[in-house]
């Protein structure tokens, strides 16, 4: 967790916000299926591909915590390199790529990279967020 509220003015372009580790376990999968129902596409021992944005978003929110309430996601670009296995330890880094104010809104782009415990890249994402303050 950051020591100060991460306002738009405090976002440093190119400066990594750190690493967040998580693991998709049985409890997370059960909660996921309570939202969406059964997995599709023949998942077995791999994390459902539809969890990519939740995994990345969780990491990105944690790495920017605390941040002002009320922010909005405006866009996402994903590359899913490999579906991780259930139980893999996933490490995500987040780095601000750019920020600008347009029409009174604070636009921020952040790049995230997620790797498994073997260092293999599993997800890459560019997240576009309208920062709240």
């Amino acid at each position: 967790m950051l020591s100060e509220l991460l306002t738009y003015d405090r976002i440093q372009i190119g400066e990594s916000l750190g690493v967040f580790e998580t693991r998709v376990d049985a409890d997370a999968l059960a909660l996921w299926r309570s939202i969406y129902g059964d997995d599709v596409g023949g998942n077995t021992d791999t994390v459902p591909p539809d969890m990519i944005s939740a995994i990345v978003m969780t990491a990105q929110l944690e790495l920017t915590n605390p941040h002002p309430d009320g922010g909005l996601h405006a866009g996402q670009h994903y590359v899913l390199h490999h579906r991780p296995r259930i139980g893999d330890v996933l490490s995500t880094t987040s780095t601000p790529l750019s920020k600008e104010i347009r029409k009174g809104r604070r636009w921020v782009k952040m790049k995230t990279e997620t790797r498994d415990q073997d260092g293999r890249m599993v997800y890459e994402t560019i997240v576009t967020i309208i920062w709240a303050a």
Binding site: G41, L72, G75, H77, V79
Partner: peptide, 25 residues
């Protein structure tokens, strides 16, 4: 996330390895 489910439902989850998606809300 429903778009990923549509992709996996159409091609199988394995076809999501190497997949790319770009969206705007």
């Amino acid at each position: 996330n429903l778009l990923w489910r549509a992709l996996a439902g159409t091609f199988g989850a394995e076809a999501c390895d190497g997949a790319e998606m770009d969206v705007r809300f």
